[in-house]
Computed example of a mutant assay.
Amino acid sequence: MPPLASLGRRLLARIIDGLLIGIPVGLVAGGLIGGFGYGFGDDDDMGQSTGVQLAILLVYFVYEGLMLSRSGQTVGKMLMKIRVAMVANGSVPAGNPGWTRAAVYSLPQLVPCIGFVFWLVNVLFCTWDKPFRQCLHDKAAKTVVVSTR
């Protein structure tokens, strides 16, 4: 098994993927839903914002599930030279493990308030987990993030 990926590389990979998905999907969804409102407290603006966030979340889920099942890497992970591997044998998390990992990372955010708290605990979990520095989405899919070089 290659060495574990650093937390910094993992974070940068997530930021790259978030921007790669969030910006174009946000612009398209915002345009389709009716723009981005700037009024404070306006119910229509709140609904538009929620719709855009939902679109970004669902596209990110599909993007991550497909990419991890195919190669164990998203674009951000490729750029940071890291990949997701199965703990048991280091293989690509094809099929259910890739989709499970993507689902546990993304979908809880659909639940207002509680989803964000779960997401926060999930992504911070790797800072204290030993020995594999796994987040909860890694544990659910039985994966680990490793360096490719």
Score class of each variant (00 low, 15 high):
Pro108Glu: 02
Phe132Cys: 05
Gly35Gln: 03
Gln134Asp: 05
Leu54Phe: 15
Ser6Asp: 15
Gly98Arg: 00
Met1Ile: 08
Ile114Cys: 12
Gly72Asn: 06
Ala55Glu: 11
Gly18Ala: 04
Pro97Phe: 06
Leu54Pro: 02
Gly35Glu: 01
Ala103Gln: 02
Gln109Phe: 09
Leu20Ile: 12
Val92Ile: 08
Leu20Ala: 15
Val123Glu: 05
Gln73Glu: 12
Phe132Asn: 12
Ile82Glu: 07
Leu66Glu: 08
Phe40Pro: 07
Ser69Asp: 10
Asn122Ala: 02
Ala29Asn: 08
Ile21Val: 14
Ser147Lys: 09
Ser147Tyr: 08
Val59Gln: 07
Cys113His: 14
Val111Tyr: 01
Gly22Pro: 00
Met80Gln: 15
Leu79His: 13
Ser49Arg: 06
Leu79Ala: 03
Val104Gly: 00
Ala141Gln: 03
Leu66Gln: 05
Asp44Thr: 13
Gly115Asp: 15
Asp129Trp: 01
Gly51Phe: 05
Ile82Leu: 09
Leu120Asp: 09
Lys142Leu: 02
Phe116Gly: 03
Val117Phe: 13
Asp138Gln: 03
Cys135Tyr: 01
Glu64Ser: 06
Gly76His: 05
Pro131Gln: 03
Ala85Cys: 07
Gly39Gln: 10
Pro112Tyr: 14
Pro97Trp: 11
Leu20Trp: 15
Ala94Phe: 11
Leu107Phe: 02
Phe116Glu: 11
Gly47His: 13
Ala94Cys: 07
Ile33Gly: 00
Thr74Gln: 01
Val75Asn: 14
Gly8Phe: 12
Leu32Ser: 10
Gln109Tyr: 06
Thr100Cys: 00
Val117Cys: 01
Leu79Met: 15
Arg133Gln: 14
Arg10Leu: 02
Ser49His: 09
Arg70Ala: 13
Gly18Leu: 06
Gly37Tyr: 06
Gly65Cys: 08
Ala88Tyr: 14
Ile82Arg: 04
Leu20Met: 05
Gln48Ser: 11
Ala141His: 04
Tyr105Ser: 04
Phe125Ala: 14
Trp99Leu: 00
Asp44Met: 13
Ile114Val: 15
Thr74Trp: 02
Met78Arg: 12
Val87Asn: 13
Gly76Glu: 05
Asp42Asn: 13
Ala29Trp: 10
